[in-house]
Amino acid sequence: MVLAVFVVRALSPAFVNDQLSDFQLPDRVQDTLTLAMSVIIESVPFVFLGILLSAVVQVWLPHGVLARHLPRNPILRRASISLLGMFFPVCECGNVPLARGFMVGGFTVSESITFLLAAPILNPITIITTHQAFGWDGHILVARLVGGFLIANVVGWLFSKHPDPQSLLTTRFAAACAVGSTSGHDHAHARESRFSQTTEIFIRETSVIMPALFIGSAVAALTQVFVPRSVLLALGSNPVWSVLAMMALAFIVAVCSNVDAFFVLSFGSTFLPGGIVAFLVFGALIDVKMLALMRTTFTSRTLVQITVVVGLMSAALGLLVNYVA
């Protein structure tokens, strides 16, 4: 199978002006494909790295060890949980199975929500890529990190006040927990070699992440090619609209948080910094793909509440950057 795909690639026309082919797609279709491919080829190495690191952590760390070593005070506990992403540098899609595993391993619902919302931003890969893309320009990196931390902790605090946290979860989560706990910890898998467990995690993670990445890249490429830049330019220079437009864009394109800084870079000259920050904060936590993934664990009602709070806080942060910074 692997060989077959290599052969197909090798036999297909290698260059556009190849003698063998007068094959030429219309410009816009061709550009859509080029842009989608460039997002995919750029992101996949990071996705693979994320899966590998998450596999290493899941295969090596003893079950439940984290929950036992964190501070007892709820606020401090959530604050330290929101920094856990520094040791689990996967993108937000990889965090969903991880957060489910945490809940099985003794985390409360609000604690795992805090992790889910903080880890996509407060992790080394996201910090490095955001820094590579923007440096210290316009305080974008600082606003992203501080904003992400605050939002995750406020949302976590709000949900910790809920009288019946279990009602936030889907009824099927009991079954889903069983799936989540196969992350290398159940007895059937305990005897398998580490490589074998890693393969299992690779198959499971890619089957969730790769389709989302492909569809996300396609939508991103289509918006790039077909939405005239002048529409965005008109919105981009208005302090309020730049924030709202970028949040809408973030919701649709669903690029993983560890590469979204590169994606949004091409809008850097068009949009005010507040819009960029709103994109980088809101998009990392909530988008089409994330809601689909999180729906496996939380009820729709819970997701609407999370989305509204995160959306309002991201917008406020963006406006703050536009008007104050």
Partner: peptide, 17 residues
């Protein structure tokens, strides 16, 4: 991704951007 020949972006994108 495997069949179409790789190529650069075209003027369509240059104009659009």
């Amino acid at each position: 991704m495997v069949v179409v020949p790789p190529t650069t972006l075209t003027s369509a994108t240059a104009t659009q951007r």
